[in-house]
Design a protein around this nucleic acid. Sequence first.
DNA 1: GTCCTGACGAGCG
DNA 2: CCGCTCGCCAGGA
Length: 112
Amino acid sequence: MPTGDASDDAKAERPREAVYRVLASIPEGCLASYGQVAELAGLPKQARQVGRMLSLLPRDTRLPWYRVVNASGKISFPAGSPGYQRQLEYLLDEGSAEASGRLRWRECRWRP
DNA sequence: GTCCTGACGAGCG
DNA sequence: CCGCTCGCCAGGA
């Protein structure tokens, strides 16, 4: 076999799994930034990749995607959009946000 | 192959 | 605090 592309497939799925793992490890009541998740997943400087993966998650996923916000400490959906509303709901539920929509940032360190 | 887009982030004025 | 630019990288047209 002239090429070792079989390992490429496995390689392509590694980042995805790593992100899911980190995502699932975010403690309830905490918030993490895309960049933080990317770094913990071994993908430094690739916050956008994390965002893209989250956008591909099925609606019925059990992963706490809503605990991920941007580095400004805000929801990365346009205010008022469906995604924004949904995420805000979850965060209100966990006490990570106020009714006004303002998020309560907490410096959370955890072990993935 | 190139060009544009995107649930981002840091830097600068 | 706001808006703009550039860097990063995967996907789709």
